[in-house]
Amino acid sequence: MATDTAAQLGSETSAGDRARARKRAPGEPRNVAWLYILPGLLFYGLFTLAPLAHTVELSFFDWDGLTVGHYIGLGNYREALDDPLVRDSFRHSAELIVFYALLPVALGLLLTAILTRHPVRGFTFFRTALFLPQMIAGVVVAQAWVWIYADNGPLNEFLRDVGLGSLARPWLGDFSWALPAVGGIGTWVTYGLCMVLFIAGAQSIPASLYDAARVDGAGAVREFFAVTLPALRNQVVVAFVLTTINALRSFDVIYNATSGGPGTTTYVPSFYMYRNAFVFNRVGYAAAIAVILTAAIFTLAGIVLYVSSRGDEG
């Protein structure tokens, strides 16, 4: 990625003084490009790559975080693969992807379709209001939803008021419903981000396309699938990648709303990793879980990007 930028930078510069720099092939980057990318590379290396490498290194040790560690090779990874809580955590994360990624993207598309077809007064206000959840700290979000989901909270009160009292339950304390309830919080947080991305994309769709569709007699649904959705493909891919990463990294909401409970029904990898690193004094094992989680995130993001790029060619 960094080198691409360097190549572009270099080629722009070299275009001007091609005559003097005969030794370089046309478009060949000059070494001065390194100066431009050095600060970024340094920061990236220091604050992203070095900690990542350190985490990988720690994952080969049995270390309590304080006293001298012991090298145990792949021991932590072998244990993690055998640990039912690791497996459960990843399974829960997979379920959360539905709530953190699929639903918000679907909701964001629906809202975009409505808002672009029927511009409403105070559009900017609604856009800001719907985006707001994204800007609130996770701890605050969790506290608010703990209240909403409480036995006497607004959600249950509403259900009882409309005669659906049999559905009312202490959502976050229910073995079957705690994970979907946490997922619901994720949907609420994320759909605003998707919507803002999609609306920004939709604004660059030429009005002539819509006019053409209408002339051809397309209705709202047809218009959406024929014009809006194809034009938003890149935004949808970006939204999927971002929200999937969010789903797999989710920690603050779980930590504050359920602490992994009831039982272990809302354990997710990042929560289990935190318990190991800071509570069980097993930093090496936590590092191994972190590495597995990172690999999972890379793989999923890679799959999303690969699938979407294949679509480009076909």
Partner: peptide, 28 residues
């Protein structure tokens, strides 16, 4: 060939920085 040389330099820089993050046996 030139681009791969640049990539090699980038990789080397990154490796050096990343290696600086590793401190041998932890806690020692």
């Amino acid at each position: 060939r030139h681009l791969s040389r640049h990539l090699a330099i980038a990789a080397a820089v990154v490796t050096v920085i990343a290696a600086a993050g590793c401190g041998g046996t932890p806690g020692s």
